[in-house]
């Protein structure tokens, strides 16, 4: 079973997202691996542990994706591919999907996994976009992927806690909601160690043309309201909470 995991990095929400002229100041922002792509990687590694598989991690080089790729290798991926070309941090998801489609067509993986969504996919989620381009079946909001011979088994979450079990013949593309287990951890030292011996495969793809959207601006939404703030001192905050709950007659003695 050849599994390809598509990963990307996104702005770290822990930090302030600086804007200028309605655009993200991408050079001043730190990027982290998209959490759902990390879940997809973990699910792929669990499938490998369970049934054996050849796991390739693929990222489009829009900036510094090397650490993300080396980390995936350190976690147990077999191969890491960096798609290089004339790409910037402002690459849209639509174009990213078209680039990934070019790559996937030449590699024909049996199973493609990626995150169900990312925090910045304004113009569509990679899973759906790519499946549409590749014209292969796909499902999103998926958990618990298992392989049996050439067959795949997985759970798709419907709404309201309902879900469904599917089986599929490859090739299939799945948008992963959560891995069966929390993503494994590797130390920075191990990643650095591996960086000395491992190599990233570079694959060249020409920037395709795709239907674009005009994004007028990004902005910090004017909040409809804001909480009355009590500061950061635990004791003071605890007193406020007791007072408010007391006033609302919500404390039982």
């Amino acid at each position: 079973m050849k599994i390809t995991v598509l990963m990307k990095d996104v702005p770290d929400l822990v930090e302030d997202l600086e804007l200028e002229a309605g655009q993200l100041l991408v050079d001043d922002i730190s990027f982290v691996v998209s959490e759902w792509d990390d879940q997809a990687l973990e699910e792929a590694l669990l499938i490998k542990d369970e049934a054996g598989a050849d796991v390739t991690i693929v990222a489009v080089d829009t900036g510094d994706v090397d650490t993300m790729l080396y980390t995936a290798l350190a976690k147990g991926a077999d191969r890491a591919v960096k798609i290089v070309g004339d790409f910037t941090r402002r690459l849209t998801n639509r174009t990213r999907a078209a680039i990934l489609a070019e790559y996937c067509k030449s590699e024909s993986p049996d199973l493609i996994l990626t995150g169900v969504q990312a925090i910045d996919d304004i113009d569509g989620q990679i899973a759906g976009l790519l499946a549409g381009y590749l014209d292969i079946p796909h499902a999103s909001v998926v958990r618990e992927v298992h392989t049996m011979d050439a067959q795949l088994h997985f759970i798709q979450e419907y709404s309201g806690g309902r879900m469904a079990e599917f089986t599929a013949a490859s090739p299939v593309l799945l948008g992963i909601q959560a891995a069966r287990k929390p993503p494994r951890y590797v130390t920075v030292a191990k990643v650095r160690q591996l960086q000395k011996s491992a190599t990233l495969d570079e694959v060249q793809v020409v920037l395709p043309s795709t239907p674009g959207l005009t994004v007028r601006r990004l902005y910090k939404p004017e909040a409809a309201g804001h909480a009355e703030m009590w500061g950061d001192d635990a004791d003071t905050v605890a007193e406020h909470i007791v007072r408010v709950l007391g006033e609302k007659k919500l404390l039982r003695s």
């Binding site: 304004i122 113009d123 790519l130 796909h138 909001v141 239907p211």
Partner: peptide
């Protein structure tokens, strides 16, 4: 932008060669 919309919206847009706006 339900499970179904998240699942199908982008795929249908890509299939049909039209744009997509999510969320």
């Amino acid at each position: 932008n339900t499970t179904m919309g998240m699942d199908l919206g982008a795929a249908i847009a890509a299939r049909r060669g039209v744009a997509m706006v999510a969320y």
